[in-house]
Every structure is written in structure tokens, then in C-alpha cells.
Design a protein around this nucleic acid. Sequence first.
DNA 1: TCAATAGTGTCTCTCAGACAATATGCG
DNA 2: CGCATATTGTCTGAGAGACACTATTGA
Lengths: 252, 252
Amino acid sequence: MPYDPSTFPPFAVTVDLVVLTVRKDALCSLVVRRGEPPYQGRWALPGGFVRDDEGLEVAASRELAEETGLLHSQATEGHRGGAHLEQLATYGAPQRDPRMRVVSVAYLVLAPDLPSPVAGGDARSARWAPSDALLDASEGLGRDAEQQAPLAFDHGQILQDGVERARSKIEYSSLATAFCPPEFTVGELRRVYEAVWGVALDPRNFHRKVTGTPGFLMPTGGTTTRQGGRPAQLFRTGEATVLNPPMLRPEA
Amino acid sequence: MPYDPSTFPPFAVTVDLVVLTVRKDALCSLVVRRGEPPYQGRWALPGGFVRDDEGLEVAASRELAEETGLLHSQATEGHRGGAHLEQLATYGAPQRDPRMRVVSVAYLVLAPDLPSPVAGGDARSARWAPSDALLDASEGLGRDAEQQAPLAFDHGQILQDGVERARSKIEYSSLATAFCPPEFTVGELRRVYEAVWGVALDPRNFHRKVTGTPGFLMPTGGTTTRQGGRPAQLFRTGEATVLNPPMLRPEA
DNA sequence: TCAATAGTGTCTCTCAGACAATATGCG
DNA sequence: CGCATATTGTCTGAGAGACACTATTGA
């Protein structure tokens, strides 16, 4: 045993949040502007230090509330009545933060579109940005004008992993409803899938599929006309959490 | 901002390994006996402290080599020529280690059956144990006699998450071949699926499915008789990493 | 009236599961 | 030969994708 555990090296542990929502038919991420070095003035994912008596998910939940006012559901894994929160991955490259050795546990949050852009507490400056633009910038792929600067630290990678997790997870779970208000129509749910995947889906096959999956959607009885055209039935999220068979993403 | 980052609380960061293999048609996990308190004498997952200048995956890889002599592939995500290693999840409940605040990043390793039980270095005492027995013990579900003691710390939960990840991931990826030697037969691959899922699969449909998925299996030309009966073709793992359509686990 | 969206029905192709039949080693 | 395993083939039902058609609102 060539290493003495009693002299373990001290680390700082943080949580970072990938908060996703669908606004104007586009997948958007919450980013905050950094007020101090390093990366001063750059956009970054919201997050902060884990306190010494605080669990990781509690810390993520606290940061979420501080930055957005959002509460996630109290249920162990569910998301009824609030945003969905789950652990994403942990990032701990030795030089990812130039100040000190920091290990960051990233969490993924799926939230419905929020009324105010951001009503956060200690967020100096925060906004919803289209995820595509942020990812292009972090890849160095941005177009000429209005070039988006890459996210601070390794947050571009974290965002990419979070977006990919969301894209993959709505295939085989009912999580897409976490992007919707408590009552929603089949068309609104379809636009969520289209925004997250960036593809067009056949409205007729989609309707047949989601209404035919037991426990996915529960009709509330009400109807509404939010997009013009024939009024649509309103639904709530059902009890099912896994979709079997899954909603398959179309091939490239 | 009611919290001063300059006084961040120090954490210890460890990696823990869920090392899975298939032995005698059963899914088995590598466990080591603890030589010191807390939980002295109990079985635990292998693992250790992350060093000061060391990345998380490097630390996991180092611990794997120290405990088993296994090397995982150098490729970023692949597993050709070695074990497969991927990050599983991070566990950081405030009291999970009574000595101090420890955040543990768990990694999942899928390895072929090893010749010697364990040829490890600093492993005082290590063995392969059937995952089912370990999980039953951690659930308090063990039968009367030869009761297996629960794993130390929260390692029962970590093992359960790792086993579930493996069960789920072989559905839609070619990772099941990581449990096989470099050359293997369709029957051997089928027994891997049966051991991991704990179900019986139809040999004929399984054969049609895996040989019909492009890029999953590459014939090497050789044949062998390892189980009696007609000789079987030998295959290597193909280039495909994702299985489309997936190998669906039968319902309960 | 038209435009737009919601919802139903029909056809075809792929694929999973059940299972018959044949191939080829070993004792 | 008898047994065990490998491999191929056939049938059937579930479900996805393409797309015609009807329903119901507002402009």
C-alpha cells in the first residue's frame, strides 16, 4: 500500500447545474455571468460549493432554488409539481479550476418554461440561452457574427453531456412531461420532443403512440385552443415512468 | 450570497469500483475484506483515495490495476483488449463514512472471467462473490444459513446501481462482449446475457438476433467445441458500440 | 370560405417470440 | 446410435412509419 490514507489530499466539492427548458420551440439552458475571475464576464453553469453538512442532491436543490426559485419535487425520483432533478456525472480533472483542486458533481434539471426569465437570488446576471448556440461555441463552431463565447471551465462538456442525457432519456421515460406545465396537450408534448431532438415528428403517429401507451397521459377532461385550430384535449402526466415500448428518436 | 467560497469545506475524494464478471453462469462482483475500522472484517468494494494530481478516471484505473492486475483499454470509451470502465455515479451523504466527510466517485468495470481468483497487489483478501447474494444481504433478505453480511458503508447501494446499469446497458450496446474472452461463441455470449439478466433466452432467436445486427460480431473463421455438441463459430467484437434495434430484456 | 390544428383509420414493413427441422461434434 | 449444442427456417402478432381522411375552431 504505497499511499497513506491518513494524509488524504483535501478537495473542494461543488455542484453544477444543467437546467434545461423548452422556450419558443428551442431547447434552452440556464447560464449565469461570472462576476469574478477566473473566466470573469464569461457565461457559466449555475452552481456552488457543497456545504460540509449537506448532501449532494440537497446542495443541488438549494442552488437551484437560489438561482431560479424553482423547487423540485420532494418525491424520491418523481417530478410532479416541480422540476425533475437527477445526478448527471462528476468532473474532476486536476486543472479544471486554476485556483484549486475542485471536483464538481453535475446535476441535470428539466423544468417547464418559467414565467420570468430568471427570478434568482444571488444570480448576478442570468439568462436562458439556446443550447445549440452554447454547444457550438464550446466546439468552436459558431458562425461569424454574434459569436457566443464558450462557457467557462469545462462547462461546455458538462452541458453537452446533460443535453445528450435529456435527449436519450425522453426516449424511454415519461420525462418529457417535466418540460410541460401541469396540464398540456398532445401537440405541446410533441413540440417538446421536436425541440429536444431537433427533428420534425409526424403529428398523427405521435398522437397514436403517446395516447396508446398506458399510464403515460391521463386526460383531465378539459380542452383548450392554444395554437389555433381545433381545440385539443388536456392531459396530466400519468403514473408510468418508463415507456415500454420506447419513443424512438428518428435516425439521422 | 450567504456563503463565502474562500472558506470552502475540505472533502476527501475516493473512487470505488463495481467490478463485474460472469463466472460459472453467475454475475459476480469483486469484493475485498476490510483490514481496519470502520467495518473491520466486512466485505467492501475495492477503492481508495484520489491523489492530489490525478484525474478521477486515472485513479479508478490505478485502483483497478492494483487490486486485480486488470488493465482497461486506452481507448477513450472502448474496451478492446481489456476491461470496460465507465463512471457510474457519485455518493456523498454527509455521514456515509464515520471518520470524515468523503465523497466517492463510483466506477463500473466489466471484465472477462479472470484465470486466478484475484492476483491483486494490496488487496489483503479479495474474492469474487455472486452479486445476488451480496445484494440480498444488503437488503436484509438473505436466507437463514450462510448469511452474507451486508457490504460496508453504502457499498450495497453502489453495487445495486452498478448491477442495474450493467443490466440496462447490455440491452442497447455491445458491452456484453466485455464479459467475454477475445474470441467467443454465440452460445457463450448468450450465457452472459442470461447470467446478467437472470433469465433464460431462446438460443435460436438469440443467434438470429446477434448475428443479424451489423457490426456486433465479426467471425474469426475458427470454430470450437467448448460445451459438447456441434462446434460453434468463433467471433470477435465488431465495430458497433450501440445496438439498433436493441436486445430487449424479457418482461418479468 | 380558408387556414390551421386535432384526431382516426389503413396499409406495409420490420422485428420479436414460438417452435420445427437440420447439422455436426462427442461418447 | 443417442445426446448435446449450433444453425437455419417458418409462422404470427405487435408496433413504427407513411399517409388519406374527417373534425372543429378562428379569421
